[in-house]
Design a protein around this nucleic acid. Structure first.
Length: 856
DNA sequence: GTGTCCGGCGCCCTCTGCTGGACGATT
DNA sequence: AAATCGTCCAGCAGAGGGCGCCGGACAC
């Protein structure tokens, strides 16, 4: 707030008596209200209040009735000289929602409206409510918030009856606390505070703190007692003003903060304060929810104290009660006053721990007989209040009413002003509002988590304690939440569980959350785009994995890698690309050869040109590919090279490839074909073997896209050689693991790992793929003399360990694996007595042994 | 003094959805 | 063999419904 703004403020006119300017710097707001009223000619509604000034100069919030604002011609964005009312677009969404509501409501008006006025540098949101709504208002001083880090001011309104409004029009909420002392907080204005309004401060992190209205009440009641402009005084009656040390401890973190100097009494008991509102010679009770005690009781964290919602009385319009002029009896321990002695006596019991009425069943003591009787009903099961619509019965009539609201009438008197939520109970509304404010009062003592209600915190604490109170009655697995257990039972122990069918493909997924939401996502899919099939019409972009990944709309579109087709959905793209499978798009100009990869064609053309650009440095061999040269070098010129063999577990034949061995093993009956010398007989040729190329991938753009060879197509010797090279090359690429041999196979088979999230202290698990390695006795790399390709030969155990097999003279089949292809190169080996002698001391096969076997 | 009304708190439950590791299938 | 993908699955939190119980206030 700049100085000019302050200067522009004049003294409050007489026709606006309920506004009292004490602090000149903050007279701006008062003036604005007054000017607004003047502009409209009449101020009919009760002006709202700004009590908090303190050291926070310029942080001002004021509320005024919508009627007054409207009649004054002051909307939510009125500018007047250097003073302007602004609606801050950067307010949180809920407040913006409120703002919208207000603007919308401005035409029709409503029963109770609150306007928030701010100075030139203050921005405000305004909300309109009816009598059943609870609204939250924020007033933000952007400049000073940034400078002081003080956050926002927030006004909270609760239902206000017409009677209350009328009453308040005649009265003034008098600030009596803060005297203007140098350096001390100063209450700058006194404005009428309708019942239910609460000024709270919302910190930068969302923390909310009550602005102590009582302080202002006291200060002003003393200083301005005789002020003729103040028609009535509000006398504080209930629990006294809050405790400065406690209350301001959050504010005290602000280096600029200075506690109020006025004496403030500590509230003693009760969560509800009562403010007496003086109207002429009448007194009005104005109940104000006292959040302070909750915080003191430790139910609320210091930072996130529950102060967003003020007085949440049920929407009964006649809550403000008029009392007699004189209050005869007043409690000495608190501000409670009552017209009858008996009332006071009864009240005094609340200050003592006297509980004369004891339950003879459990020993619990109560202050009143009624309480004891209700308590006894819990023992006896006596429930005199029976529901006429169901079999339920309750101890008290109130419980019955509430039950009927929940189950039968569905009456939900407590409505949220920020959304459509409504609740039977105000406590539920309070809890709900925390979801708007982000408030999390319940802080975990062990981590940074904070919850919005106690139950969530309690549930969260199980993550620290490890408590798992829910046990599956079938498998006795334990869970932290009942829902998790139920889902477990449903998925693991229940037959015919309903699955979730993807509406756009044939996928069936067990859990709905894995499939995803079925929300509308039309907004995400431009209607102008040609892509308009049904896929995304019911898919939310933020949905689960399947829908999100497979069926979500891709705005930019993805082009098929084989043609020019463009798709906006991954699923459709993949399906389309599969249609290109087996297409051979590259054709040789010199022969009939065609293939699916350009690199294949490059190599093929070298068969026409005879080009072999890669020469071995150790011999005269040349190769068409560098990788082939590398393989050659490794096999013939690298002394550390050892091939790998795969052994059929049934007949002990060896294979150079795993897949070949596996395919053989499927049809193997365990009989060993023997050579004349007793060695196992290879079924097929050796070098120049028939091979099966890897199936090409449907999706990947990787260059290891190999033509299918097992389709019975003969593509000529040249290509066979080329493919051989390529396969060898791929084997080379895949078998680059260090040739450390022998590799002792694990003795124990792998344990099937339980699916799902592992326990917090997982035991070391054997990799699932060890199932293959479990039968591996040794890994040997062999270099092809012809091609120079290196082959990994894995010697596998059959039943017992390798050493046993060898010692028994069992035949071992060794397959040289030159990659993951399925090409066949069978080498039959026989482990006889001679090789037994070469067995390593520990019984494993040695590389020398295997090579010896292969040499045979 | 008693009974009733009402507010408030706490607890427990269900439903829902997100997250990330595990794991089998595919490439 | 390794990378990738998609589903399974438990863990965990958000939100809200429902109810038991206590205690203050008030009328009779």
């Amino acid at each position: 707030m700049d100085g000019s703004s302050a200067e522009a403020v004049d003294a409050p006119p007489k026709d606006f008596p309920s506004i009292q300017a004490v602090h000149s710097q903050e007279a701006l707001v008062v003036d604005l209200l007054q000017q607004a009223a003047e502009a409209g000619g009449v101020v009919q509604g009760p002006a709202a209040v700004i009590l908090e000034q303190g050291h926070v100069e310029g942080m001002v919030a004021a509320a005024q009735s919508q009627q007054a604002l409207l009649e004054a011609g002051v909307g939510v964005s009125v500018q007047r000289g250097e003073v302007e009312m602004m609606v801050m677009d950067s307010l949180d969404p809920t407040l913006m929602q409120m703002k919208t509501e207000v603007i919308d409501a401005a035409v029709g008006g409503s029963s109770a409206t609150v306007g928030v006025v701010a100075g030139a540098t203050h921005q405000a949101a305004v909300a309109t409510v009816d009598q059943t709504q609870i609204i939250t208002l924020q007033v933000v001083n952007m400049e000073e918030q940034a400078a002081l880090g003080l956050g926002e001011l927030q006004l909270v309104q609760v239902p206000v009856s017409a009677a209350a409004v009328d009453a308040l029009q005649q009265g003034t909420f008098v600030d009596t606390t803060a005297m203007p002392k140098t350096g001390d907080p100063v209450i700058c204005h006194t404005l009428p505070l309708p019942e239910g309004f609460q000024v709270v401060k919302v910190g930068a992190n969302g923390e909310v703190e009550t602005v102590e209205q009582e302080e202002g009440v006291e200060a002003h009641s003393e200083e301005d007692e005789d002020d003729a402009e103040v028609g009535q005084q509000l006398l504080e009656e209930g629990e006294e003003a809050a405790q400065p040390a406690n209350h301001h401890q959050n504010w005290a973190k602000d280096p600029d903060y200075q506690p109020p100097s006025g004496g403030i009494k500590k509230a003693k008991k009760g969560k509800k304060s009562r403010l007496r509102y003086a109207e002429g010679d009448k007194d009005m009770d104005v109940s104000v929810y006292d959040f302070e005690e909750e915080q003191q009781e430790g139910l609320l964290s210091e930072v996130n104290a529950e102060k967003v919602v003020g007085n949440m009385k049920p929407p009964k319009p006649t809550k403000i009660k008029k009392k007699g002029v004189k209050k005869t009896f007043q409690c000495e321990l608190c501000s409670y006053t009552c017209p009858r002695r008996s009332n006071l006596d009864r009240h005094m019991k609340s200050h003592t721990d006297e509980r004369p009425h004891k339950c003879h069943l459990c020993g619990r003591a109560f202050r009143t007989v009624t309480l004891l009787r209700n308590h006894l009903n819990t023992h006896t099961g006596t429930r005199p209040h029976k529901c006429t619509d169901c079999d339920m019965a309750f101890v008290t009539s109130g419980e019955l009413v509430r039950h009927r609201r929940y189950k039968h009438t569905h009456e939900k008197p407590f409505k949220c002003s920020m959304c459509d939520y409504a609740s039977v109970e105000v406590s539920k509304l309070k809890r709900h509002i925390r979801s708007h404010t982000g408030e999390r009062p319940f802080q975990c003592s062990l981590c940074s988590y904070a919850s919005r209600d106690t139950y969530k915190l309690k549930r969260h604490m199980r993550t620290h304690s490890g408590e798992k109170p829910y046990e599956c009655y079938i498998c006795h697995a334990r869970f932290t939440q009942s829902g998790t257990m139920k889902m477990h039972i449903l998925q693991k122990h229940t037959e015919n569980v309903a699955k979730f069918h993807c509406p756009h493909c044939d996928t069936v997924i067990a859990r709905k959350s894995d499939l995803g939401k079925n929300g509308q996502c039309e907004a995400a899919r431009p209607a102008s785009l040609p892509w308009a099939h049904s896929v995304c019409l019911s898919v939310c972009l933020s949905a689960g994995v399947h829908l999100r990944k497979q069926h979500s709309f891709i705005e930019t579109g993805k082009k098929c890698r084989y043609c020019d087709a463009v798709f906006h959905e991954r699923y459709a793209l993949i399906q389309h690309q599969k249609s290109h499978k087996n297409e051979k798009r590259f054709k040789c100009d010199l022969c009939d050869y065609c293939c699916r990869q350009e690199r294949h064609m490059v190599m093929h053309r070298r068969t026409h040109t005879g080009e072999k650009p890669f020469a071995c440095s150790q011999c005269e061999k040349t190769f068409r590919q560098k990788q082939l040269l590398d393989m050659h070098f490794k096999r013939y010129h690298d002394p550390n090279f050892v091939p790998t063999a795969f052994v059929c577990p049934k007949c002990s034949k060896t294979f150079t490839r795993r897949n070949t061995m596996a395919r053989h093993s499927e049809n193997c009956n365990g009989e060993v074909e023997e050579f004349e010398n007793g060695a196992a007989t290879p079924k097929k040729g050796r070098r120049g073997r028939k091979r099966k190329m890897r199936t090409r991938r449907d999706e990947d753009d990787s260059e290891d896209d190999i033509p299918e060879q097992d389709e019975g197509e003969e593509e000529g010797e040249e290509e066979a050689a080329l493919l051989q090279e390529e396969e060898d090359l791929e084997g080379m690429e895949l078998d680059q693991a260090p040739a450390v041999i022998p590799v002792v196979a694990p003795d124990e088979p792998p344990v099937k790992r339980k699916r799902g999230r592992p326990p917090k202290n997982p035991k070391p698990q054997t990799p699932s793929r060890a199932g293959t390695a479990s039968s591996v006795a040794a890994t040997i790399q062999v270099e092809d003399e012809l091609t120079g390709a290196v082959e990994n030969i894995i010697v596998k155990k059959e039943g017992g360990d390798a050493a046993t097999s060898v010692k028994q003279g069992a035949d071992l089949a060794v397959e040289g694996g030159v990659g993951g292809g399925e090409g066949v190169e069978e080498v039959e080996l026989t482990v006889n007595q001679e090789t037994t002698a070469a067995t390593a001391a520990n019984g494993d096969l040695t590389p020398e042994m295997i090579l010896s076997m292969m040499d045979r």
